[in-house]
Design a binder for these strands. Structure first.
Length: 212
DNA sequence: CCGCCGATGGTC
DNA sequence: ACCATCGGCGGC
């Protein structure tokens, strides 16, 4: 008999695969944050984006390795956390193997009963900046190991998600990336309220992504 | 409801 | 100078 355990961690082999596949497969799984007080904050992943390889113009790794993006060149299964616009952190899970720069941005989480987020607001977690605030994900966690760490990890969600609810579309906020701005590397679960709303379109050019 | 704009600071 | 963002505010 299977029961949900927040210690049922995603293994290294989960991350060391094609980033687009990992981005799809992360949907429905859990982000777990253990505070110094031992309090657990948990969110269910409902939206992701893939950033894959040195040729991806939208990726922070496009211009090569820098101090900030160096975790993207590390092994799969570590965190890459960066600050943007002076006030928000964004959480990524690094994918692929060492020296191959790639990661999945976690863009939205939904709340999990009995593990409340730091904000009571039902829209906490609706966006990459807000979910880091709601889970107290700090820049200092960049590079931390999600497979063996004790502050932040990803765990298997309860029951496999319904693949017919998987959707895909272009990534958000990467208009500078020329042809890479259009690849449908954003993935989400249809009907989840905390998924990003796209500026400028009512029912955008989204497609049903092909299942795993 | 939609779109614009300013906040705010690290990174290159 | 440029952002893998967000919320408030003003126009329709």
């Amino acid at each position: 008999m299977w029961r949900m355990s927040l210690e049922n961690r995603l293994p290294r082999s989960f991350y060391e695969r094609d980033t687009v596949q990992v981005a799809k497969d992360l949907l429905g799984n859990l982000v777990v944050r253990r505070m110094a007080s031992s309090r657990l904050l948990v969110g269910r992943i409902v939206e992701t984006e893939a950033y894959h390889g040195q040729k991806d113009r939208a990726s922070h790794a496009f211009r090569g390795r820098t101090p900030r993006n160096s975790p993207m060149f590390g092994p799969g299964g570590i965190a890459y956390v960066y600050q943007i616009y002076g006030m928000w952190n964004c959480l990524n899970a690094v994918t692929m193997g060492i020296e191959y720069p790639a990661a999945v941005l976690i863009r939205a989480i939904s709340q999990v009963p009995s593990y409340p987020l730091l904000q009571a607001d039902p829209r906490a977690g609706s966006g990459p900046g807000k979910l880091c605030r709601a889970l107290a994900v700090e820049k200092g966690m960049s590079g931390a190991d999600l497979v063996n760490g004790d502050e932040l990890w990803l765990a298997e969600g309860e029951s496999p998600m319904d693949r017919s609810l998987l959707r895909s579309g272009p990534r958000i906020g990467v208009g500078y990336a020329e042809e890479w701005a259009e690849v449908p590397w954003r993935f989400w679960i249809a009907g989840e309220p905390s998924v990003s709303r796209i500026p400028g379109s009512r029912l955008p050019g989204t497609t049903r992504a092909t299942g795993s």
